[in-house]
Design a binder for these strands. Sequence first.
DNA 1: CCGAGAAATGCTCGAACTGAGCATAATGGT
DNA 2: ACCATTATGCTCAGTTCGAGCATTTCTCGG
Lengths: 309, 309
Amino acid sequence: MTDKDAASIELTAVIVAVTGDEPRVLTIRGGGALPTGVFESGHRSLQTGLRSWVERQTHHPLGYIEQLYTFADRDRMEGGAGGRVISISYLGLTREGRASGEHVPAWESWYRYFPWEDWRSGPSRLVARVILPRLRRWAAEATDAATRRDRARRIRATFGTSEETWNEELVLQRYELLYEAGLVPEAARSGPRAEPELLGRRMAHDHRRILATGVARLRAKIKYRPVVFELMPPSFTLLQLQRAVEALAGRRLHKQNFRRLIDQQGLVEETGEIATATGGRPAKLFRFRREVLLERAVAGTKLPLSRSA
Amino acid sequence: MTDKDAASIELTAVIVAVTGDEPRVLTIRGGGALPTGVFESGHRSLQTGLRSWVERQTHHPLGYIEQLYTFADRDRMEGGAGGRVISISYLGLTREGRASGEHVPAWESWYRYFPWEDWRSGPSRLVARVILPRLRRWAAEATDAATRRDRARRIRATFGTSEETWNEELVLQRYELLYEAGLVPEAARSGPRAEPELLGRRMAHDHRRILATGVARLRAKIKYRPVVFELMPPSFTLLQLQRAVEALAGRRLHKQNFRRLIDQQGLVEETGEIATATGGRPAKLFRFRREVLLERAVAGTKLPLSRSA
DNA sequence: CCGAGAAATGCTCGAACTGAGCATAATGGT
DNA sequence: ACCATTATGCTCAGTTCGAGCATTTCTCGG
């Protein structure tokens, strides 16, 4: 390779936990950035490089990890030193611990960065009162009629038109639409707006985009893989489990049906113990049946297979 | 960044088409490698870099593209020149065209690389007669009892025990298991075996692993996104469509139910024309309703949502 | 001790979806 | 005209899914 084409590899982590019914993400610099570090020649693999960075910066051990996405078209060549930056991001799940370190690590609710993504108390008022009006203005101000129609369509596709059509997985598409419409601070060329954090707290570089990617991936994944359990304590009540899923999905679930779903899947077993007072009738405690991760690689088909010939 | 930590970025493409009821992948060097190139400082983005490489090497235009995975722990530092290689892979879908170029591009059936993945004519005989016996021997030869049990479990989990438990999505896991068991040539330290290509043709570097990743991703994706249509001609019969899906999934589908599924989803519309003689009664021709890609971001939930409060 | 409030659990019911397969309709070939 | 082959329509029963009623068990304020 020639020096000209060499790149520096940056590892960025989206580490998620759920505490107090809130989905949290591990941040540094007082919530302004995700844990990040350079992939060094001494690291054995991407994963080990990432683990060592996160642990160095936050003193927090990681559990489950999966690769998220690799970004390269990021437009910051500030230093001018030449050479581009490739950013490889990972999604990690863990239970919140006490993070510490010189980089001021902290667990922040991810809704602080995407306040419009929380529909747990019904349709987001922020979407209805602020975002949609502004987006519609943006759509209307296009000079080209085709562009206007296309913008309107994208607004409809990503933000839906009602609680039934809201699709909680489109986190990234929504963020990118807001970005394109110039409604998030990262996109504004001018100085800070007069509305601090109304449309979510900004983060350094493209970290908010990476976070959106992580949230979207996790919201999709909880539907077909038993990953929520990575975020739960060793034993928990079914309501606690439901609250964790709701925190991630940003939506309320039907209690009885949620329970039916869980035990149909045989993912948990009773510990035999009872949760002391949770406000009403005491609840049975359950634990995750880790064996299922080994038994079945899970996931069912959706194709109409035909029986053997 | 210090020079020591700089890396060269390699782009690798898994380009897929379906022709003659076979899933094909675009290769170079006579089928021995995937189209690859260095991500140069002149490329605007990863995607454009990839497109330019593939088009230069194969003279073939690309349609749909998505990022697959980023590999770094590849163990070839042959040149010793220092600096590592990061390999960013992409999955592309297109219709087969005449590829050409100095690199000898060619469309190869992907089952040439993974012959055990084709179950369209019932349970793979290769799996039953060759693979499972060898894997079981490998499992049995472990000295540690726990290792033996674990190997047996992994064999069961990835290869299943019958046609009903075969999971076509586990392409990567199966390849990696075979690799670990030393059954694929890439893993063998010694020279070529006496069984040319019995367990699939080998490819340069880790290209077969990348291909496995692509096949797995595509097999998963056809179930929840209308991506097959990227591989179809402008108009087609429902049987052609079914054969394409079967080619990708490596399994036979139930004809009537497949049709029901397709039109329930409203993905196609009649062109009004009739296919001339396909061996039996003439079939209606259909076209993909591209609008659906815009309308719905698709995908349904699986969470038991509760109605508005 | 009594009644209200909050949760935990059990169950039911009808609508929608799925897996399998029977039956009939068109064509080309022998 | 009969056969092989593919296209299409429809049926039927088993399962899954969305909603919601009914009961059970605790805690807490009076």
